[in-house]
Write a protein that binds this DNA or RNA. Structure first.
Lengths: 166, 166
DNA sequence: GCAATATACTAGGACATCCAAGGGTTTGGA
DNA sequence: TCCAAACCCTTGGATGTCCTAGTATATTGC
């Protein structure tokens, strides 16, 4: 009836095959991968009733916090840290659902602005409430561990060039 | 020239909109998502010369550690913690590349065994060496932080039902 | 022994991500 | 002024993941 930890198994395999020096690092990275998978599944589950995926939700949330309620596509791509084509894809679907609208940039003909519709704003608010209550509010992390995670992962991301201190 | 941290921005937004109680949790979870994205990109980059993706590499590595060099599809699905159709997909491509082979289970007609070919075993070994040297060996995590991550994420995964202590 | 239930794998479809390439718009240096 | 380089978005293609069926094989219970 035992359900052993596949990551602990992998670590043992690494150690037994001459890679003991990187076994812990491998285990930590694999654990991050798996944790992300679990969290993403929870998030997608919470968003399902809203007919939203996490990618689309993130875009809606980003727009809802923008002062003007609009953002250029490339800005959204940079802030969400995803490929521009992923934003195109998300906007296509959100636009079909009537949650956002595209409009040309007033002065730069290359740029397209994304704008939240009233319906999009309402849905973003509802989805955020559910996400906060059902996922973030019940993450399963101890609160000291949350601070540790933010510190460790923040250090990693800064080191990876994800952002710089101004 | 500042490149502020998008996650810190999001956390501020959360706090300013009445969700201060879950803002830290949101930030930690978002950081996990982003860290996974960065790590996955590194891994895929390291595997590119081998014409392998991470999903396919994981399957090869798993097979290379199996005593007999073979595993039933359902076993692989359970150990990799992915959907059975994902394994079907990976095996299809690995089989096309001549790295694994399917064979019927000797006693259970429902089951298909995946077997590593000689070529697959060689490639797995080379890819592992590169991954260990270029990714796991240069993760960018402090070694005390690696232990912390393993502890925190291990606790989370156990809590999430990912595994049980025997 | 045979029908009902359970298990294993695969086919088809929806989504998301990235890369490569193409067409339109701006910008900046000759 | 004018054209090349830079920038922005979209299309098309490859992968991967999951879900929902559907087919085939095993196991169970009466």
């Amino acid at each position: 009836m035992a359900a052993p930890d596949p990551i602990a198994d992998a670590r043992r395999n690494w150690e037994e095959h001459g890679w003991a020096d990187v076994a812990a690092s491998m285990a930590a990275i694999t654990a991050i991968m798996r944790t992300q998978q679990i969290l993403l599944a929870r998030i997608e589950g919470a968003l399902k009733p809203f007919r939203l995926t996490f990618a689309r939700y993130e875009l809606l949330a980003l727009l809802s916090f923008a002062r003007s309620g609009t953002l250029p596509m490339n800005k959204a791509s940079a802030l969400l840290q995803v490929h521009p084509t992923s934003v195109t894809n998300a906007v296509d679907r959100l636009e079909s659902a009537g949650l956002v609208a595209r409009s040309p940039h007033p002065t730069d003909g290359r740029t397209t602005l994304i704008e939240l519709t009233a319906e999009g704003r309402t849905l973003a608010k509802s989805a955020t409430a559910v996400l906060n209550t059902d996922v973030f509010g019940k993450s399963g992390f101890a609160s000291e561990d949350i601070d540790e995670l933010i510190r460790i992962l923040g250090s990693f991301r800064r080191n990876a060039g994800d952002f710089t201190d101004d």
